[in-house]
């Protein structure tokens, strides 16, 4: 599929300032997203996945130390836009988000239908009644009885609230939707139902997703591209087909082997050690203390993203020049 690029990210960085030091939560991230692509962003807790989401929609906490790079949407670098323009033209309009834990962030005192309609009312100044009507239609499309629009958050199950959160992200007709762990608090059957829903609406609305998850099995339900993040750095970027059959980075390999499966007889294995601190990470390749293949160069110098195939990049000296 050689379709148009809708999003292109160059050297994106986001560091937080804390009492203990600077947290390099996201460093030098590069990727392209094409129309109707689903890029899964995978990695373990604290590796920087939500930070990437926040950086893309510019919803930032106060303690930002560094926020730089290029975010090119339809040919325009939106990092150059002032907050007002970004809010009016980009956030929700072009790129919207279902935040991690969104289903628990609804305001308990407003009806769900109103809250789903809120981006329209606030950002597009659509008349309240009309907006709520649109919300109601969209919620129905998400598999919710439209009468649920009248309910308060506490009157809905987790699965229903999550559907409402997805409806809310879609109400402004965005091209790109970021889904940050959209099913992680839900039970397995509800999760499968929501994944079905996400597949269906992606086709229907010709959406592109950035699908953030720590679960490699779940990622394969939606993704045609995969980005692996380790300690704030992207370490592999690949098509899903290649990634799931022949991952290249030692961390990607280890992570895939650590997933227990139901349909194969493979015994899962673990990677010894734990992910590093982002305040004082290891020198060189951040994975070297846990890597079976590491040699002197790995602790001395940080590898770049090396191209190993068509649209396939790996941050590891095993694939570097002169090896």
């Amino acid at each position: 599929m050689s379709s148009e690029t809708v999003l292109s990210v160059h050297d994106l960085k986001l560091y937080y300032r804390t009492r203990k030091g600077i947290v390099k939560a996201l460093d030098d991230v590069n990727f392209d997203l094409k129309k109707e692509d689903v890029l899964a962003v995978v990695g373990e807790s604290g590796c920087g996945k939500s930070t990437l989401a926040r950086a893309l929609v510019r919803v930032l906490p106060r303690n930002i130390h560094t926020y730089e790079g290029e975010i090119i949407l339809n040919g325009r670098n939106v990092m150059d836009l002032d907050e007002e323009t970004f809010r009016r033209e980009i956030r929700w309009r072009k790129i919207s988000i279902v935040f991690q834990g969104a289903m628990n962030s609804f305001n308990p005192v407003y009806r769900i239908g109103y809250q789903v309609a809120e981006p329209l009312i606030i950002h597009d100044h659509v008349e309240k009644k009309k907006a709520i009507e649109k919300a109601r239609q969209l919620m129905e499309l998400m598999g919710m009885p439209s009468a649920f629009a009248e309910r308060y958050p506490f009157e809905l199950s987790g699965g229903m609230k999550q559907r409402a959160a997805i409806a809310m992200a879609l109400i402004t007709n965005p091209e790109i939707v970021i889904l940050d762990e959209p099913t992680s608090a839900l039970d397995v059957l509800t999760q499968a139902n929501i994944i079905n829903l996400l597949k269906r609406i992606k086709n229907e609305f010709r959406l592109s997703y950035i699908f953030i998850t720590h679960d490699l099995g779940l990622a394969s339900e939606l993704a045609n591209r995969v980005a692996v993040i380790y300690a704030g750095k992207m370490v592999e970027l690949s098509s899903a087909d290649v990634f799931y059959t022949e991952p290249k980075h030692p961390y990607s390999k280890g992570l895939l082997l650590s997933v227990p499966t139901l349909r194969t007889d493979r015994k899962p294995e673990f990677i010894s050690g734990a992910p590093p601190s982002l305040i004082d990470p290891p020198s060189g390749c951040k994975f070297h203390p846990r890597c079976r293949f590491a040699w002197s160069k790995c602790s001395a110098e940080e590898p770049a993203m090396f191209k190993v195939g068509e649209d396939h990049f790996v941050r590891c000296w095993l694939y570097g020049d002169g090896r």
Partner: peptide, 15 residues
């Protein structure tokens, strides 16, 4: 049925 194994073919089917 609902529990996915990592497999790139998953994206081509509904559960």
């Amino acid at each position: 049925t609902a529990t996915p194994d990592p497999n790139p073919e998953n994206r081509n089917r509904f559960k």
